[in-house]
Design a binder for these strands. Sequence first.
DNA 1: ATCAATTATTTCGATATCGAAAGAATGCGC
DNA 2: GCGCATTCTTTCGATATCGAAATAATTGAT
Lengths: 150, 150
Amino acid sequence: MVTGGHPRLPALDAYIKLVRAASSVTALLEPRLRAAGLTTSQFGVLEAVHHLGPLCLGDLARKILTSSANLTTVVDSLERRRLVARRRDPSDRRRTEVCLTARGRRLISGLFPSHARAIEHAFSTLDDAEQRELAGLCRRLGLAAAAAKP
Amino acid sequence: MVTGGHPRLPALDAYIKLVRAASSVTALLEPRLRAAGLTTSQFGVLEAVHHLGPLCLGDLARKILTSSANLTTVVDSLERRRLVARRRDPSDRRRTEVCLTARGRRLISGLFPSHARAIEHAFSTLDDAEQRELAGLCRRLGLAAAAAKP
DNA sequence: ATCAATTATTTCGATATCGAAAGAATGCGC
DNA sequence: GCGCATTCTTTCGATATCGAAATAATTGAT
């Protein structure tokens, strides 16, 4: 999408800036993760399980915005490195829960604080009220788009 | 990133909502492109060249936010389908310009209007002022993050 | 109880994407 | 003008990602 100056089409203009902002911030965070041998998806899984406890693959896939097919390989990589373990959910044996190992917990605990600080730093060009404003607008937009998805 | 309710860390909260919003809207647009046999990247190239005229690969890579290595394959696909053509830039022979063929121009001309309408529709949950507000915040954030990059 | 429909995960084959290094052309400093 | 650092594109090898089909487990209607 390419627009500029005084946008005749505000939605188009907002869309391209939204995508670029998300991409720029993510690009800023990636080297740190890469240094720890993690992709953004792998980090997302560790972080979700760290903060929410064991989750099944489907929930994780929705959480980190990837297909369940892909999540299988993401978790495979983490499991190979003994950062997480799969466990059949006893209450619904179709599900596989992903749990952190001690090693995985150590890694994500060590990584998360500086990751959060990097995000805060990237966002520091917006003041607190603006950050909340942005979050609110994105939340409404994301919910509407997700609802339209069928 | 997983937060919720009253965010203790507004930046973190804004970041996750930003990424989810961008992803949800993009996911909404993808089926239309897929039906035309285009990926988001391929569409991005056609659209950029359509609106800006011939561009060299490096500029295109920056425009659509991908690596130059990847852009080579994106343009390869488009060229194989005779939607674009490569042309050495005579003024700087290191550069390769990408131009639309008649076929490519037909395709993007036919596709773009409904694409733009789909974006407007996705954004219609925000009023005009909110869309501009969102664009402005994203623009500042994106610029700051891009500036911090190297 | 049985089986059809549903849900969760994995497998499969194909493509997209990346980072690093190689290759090609340019331009800068001298 | 010469050579070297720079810029642009491609190649290479590896991984990430996807959609569709296959597999496994559960639920629900009868």
